[in-house]
Nucleic acid binder design. Structure first.
Lengths: 229, 229
DNA sequence: TACATTCATATTGTCAACAATATTTAAAAT
DNA sequence: ATTTTAAATATTGTTGACAATATGAATGTA
């Protein structure tokens, strides 16, 4: 595995520690969407003073997990359809570009690792074709492995720190819905094949299709959900 | 002009006000690159207490203008060649995608405005073919106008809040170097023509070429500069 | 009853002092 | 003279109190 891909973990300060914790609580729904966050309350419940808490909230704002309005307060974002669309479009643009770069930069050993990863996914799917929920994590692993090899630190950080946090939140929200995972696996193989052929042009196109396809499925599900309610 | 494209200006708090001010001071070089920032000193020089100043520094960190290490301190980033490359690659990916979206979403009136903008640039260039420095601002206007019409708030915010701040910093650093601006104008016309033909595919390709071309020129200049020193 | 205004309350923004950590300086040992 | 160690200094992290602003309740008026 490469170094220098992920920033060093700095959890030394209270502010940073609480930031991480609140982040997880928002993503996993412990703090529900749209909820107003009172500084005094939260500070008490995490047992720190308001100073570091405010700094944590600022960091949360910078990765779009909360909205802050001066003098008014902070509240957790609500993942509506428009926001998810924006996020998936961003992924399309950025992961498409990332795979194009990675396709040129990857050593063969990384490509081999990707094939092994997909084989593992394939086995997991065959083993348990009922409970496909677990598999979604595998999807993230695949995407993460690829963009982390693109050699552009800004791109990596944005995908990792911002987009994928919101994405995890989406997944959590839609985790009860069962997806068909075989088509995704097929897409993944096609992408790795393009990388293996050192065809960045094609790799980008396939990645874009893969992500925009995922969005179309998700969009339909969300609309159905809305109609039901 | 559309509303809802730029977030409302919130300069109500000290923290926000100082953030804006330090941001400008960094971008324009008043605070030089690589400089260590002492909280006590800066707080005194902006005549506020350390609380709001720290919040401002966190915001600056979130747009990559400073590096913070816990317990150690804050320093202004240094724009080396690798970082500029990353930024230009990001622009290539994101502005390419933005123009693709904008190409579909733009009403004809916006396209007319773009043509008028380019005519104005053309006139400015002819008028003062010596001092092309001023013209670079025009380039930013053009790019900004396009991506602000892409209808994806995440994309707009990232370009506007992060990439373009660093880009302005680059421009300031290389402002003494004269550029030939006619080729850029030619590219701009080609892009607007593609938009006018409602050809998002082509518009994206042209935008990518335009930006990667600009990077190649800049890269050469930076290398020459290094050799000299 | 509906609406506007005023006052009380709660929440956010700011400050200055204190604690914890890093950096520098000076002394001691090899 | 160079490296190690230890103390002193400076800087960052944290806290609780105070000021400014917004929110909500109560009162009065149409």
């Amino acid at each position: 595995m490469n170094v220098n891909v992920l920033q060093p973990i700095k959890q030394d300060t209270l502010s940073e520690h609480v930031f991480q914790q609140i982040k997880e609580d928002i993503i996993t729904g412990v703090i529900p969407q749209g909820q107003k966050i009172g500084e005094t309350d939260l500070a008490k419940s995490y047992d720190i003073s308001r100073g570091p808490l405010r700094e944590a909230l600022h960091k949360l704002e910078s990765i779009q997990l909360v909205d802050r309005r001066p003098h008014s307060g902070t509240r957790v974002i609500t993942l509506d359809c428009a926001m998810m669309r924006d996020v998936y479009q961003m992924r399309e643009a950025m992961e498409g570009f990332a795979v194009r770069l990675a396709c040129v930069a990857m050593p063969q050993s990384d490509i081999d690792n990707l094939y092994r990863l997909l084989e593992k996914h394939e086995a997991t799917i065959k083993q348990s074709d009922g409970k496909q929920y677990f598999q979604k994590e595998g999807d993230l692993d695949f995407h993460y492995y690829i963009f982390s090899k693109c050699q552009n630190q800004w791109l990596i950080n944005y995908l990792n720190d911002k987009l994928y946090q919101v994405l995890r939140m989406c997944r959590h929200r839609t985790s009860q819905i069962p997806f068909r995972v075989e088509p995704a696996l097929h897409d993944h193989y096609a992408i790795v094949n393009a990388i293996n052929d050192r065809d960045p042009e094609l790799a980008e196109i396939l990645m874009r299709r893969h992500i925009s396809g995922a969005w179309k499925i998700l969009e339909n599900l969300l609309n159905q959900e809305e109609i039901k309610e």
